[in-house]
């Protein structure tokens, strides 16, 4: 097992380095820079010398290779640089948003798991009955419907519904409050995006649970268990479901990694001050320092999540860790 973990860990480094090279050079291949957006973007008069001065101050006038060296060596001394837009440390800007994105991702995952595993299991057990058809329709609708669009519908529904029934339109709060400070306000804001993203997430996981369970239920050892006279409940819970969970965990892992930074539009729709919104803003502003660190963060989350999924695989299936 230790050898297996070491091998997986060693694969992380070249992946991160490759991502760093790609993100750094691809960003700079895009025309324009933060100084032009910041000083000339509003259409007001701008002095060319001021734009040059801005570039010098932000290090954009340095040769590309020097900028890359600064970027890479920053990791060694844990100096990820300052945002080119706000001048504040990147770590501070990301840290501020990370807790919100993490909370939404966790809540959406919870919503997804709570919906997906029971529904997927029921759908498989009741294959080709009306229950199965209802669950499949529900999950296909979830896959077909983008979460940001569902988010827009939720907000409009709340505004119109509350105005109709209560006389005053109500919408979720548009500012984040920590759950430790005011749990009710926190939930009033985050439950809606969690439902909007969790539904789509659950739809994918439901279908995966159903097909994985159907496959397992046709295995010889399940037939053997039935022949031994085991109850269906024990067969499903103890033998089938555990083995069917392998691909479901992969999906949950991938989706969770996506939620940490991938909710770019949903965060905009609900005005969530998370990683996704920061991503959009930094790309729009050509804030190279922020964008490249955000990409690296998402890559890191994806890599770590994959690593954790691999470990779970190995724990669930001894053939993997002994291979």
């Amino acid at each position: 097992m230790h050898k297996y973990i070491a091998k997986r860990l060693l694969l992380i480094l070249p992946t991160l380095l490759g991502a760093a090279v790609l993100v750094f050079f691809l960003l700079r291949a895009i025309p324009g820079d933060v100084c032009e957006v910041r000083l000339a973007g509003s259409g007001l008069y701008v002095d060319e010398a001021e734009i040059e001065l801005c570039r010098e101050k932000l290090g954009l006038a340095k040769p590309l290779i020097v900028q890359f060296w600064d970027f890479i060596t920053g990791y060694v001394v844990w100096d990820l640089g300052d945002s080119m837009w706000t001048g504040k440390p990147v770590t501070e800007e990301i840290g501020l948003r990370f807790k919100l994105s993490l909370q939404v991702a966790l809540m959406a995952t919870l919503v997804a798991v709570v919906i997906a595993i029971p529904l997927g299991a029921i759908s498989a057990i009741k294959q080709d009955t009306w229950i199965d058809y209802v669950v499949r329709s529900f999950s296909i609708a979830g896959i077909a419907m983008p979460s940001f669009w569902l988010g827009i519908l939720i907000i409009l529904g709340l505004l119109i519904g509350t105005q109709h029934f209560l006389g005053t339109p109500w919408m979720p709060p548009i500012e984040y409050v920590s759950p430790f400070k005011d749990l009710a306000s926190n939930m009033a804001q985050l439950i809606w995006p969690a439902v909007a993203t969790g539904y789509r997430y659950s739809a994918v996981a439901t279908r995966m649970t159903r097909s994985a369970l159907l496959e397992v239920l046709r295995e010889d050892y399940i037939r053997t268990a039935r022949a031994k006279g085991m109850t269906e409940k024990i067969i499903i819970n103890r033998h089938a479901l555990k083995n069917a969970m392998l691909p479901v965990f992969t999906i949950i892992g991938i989706e969770f990694a996506f939620l940490m930074g991938g909710l770019v539009v949903t965060e905009q729709v609900f005005n969530l001050n998370g990683i996704g919104k920061l991503f959009v803003e930094s790309v729009q502003a050509q804030d190279f320092a922020m964008t490249q660190q955000l990409v690296m963060l998402v890559v890191l989350i994806a890599v770590v999540t994959n690593f954790v999924v691999d470990l779970v695989y190995a724990w669930l299936d001894p053939r993997i860790r002994y291979a």
């Binding site: 324009g32 820079d33 032009e36 957006v37 000339a40 973007g41 729009q284």
Partner: peptide, 9 residues
């Protein structure tokens, strides 16, 4: 916007 300005300027 950034690419628009780059084209312009």
């Amino acid at each position: 916007s950034p690419q628009f300005y780059a084209t312009l300027r």
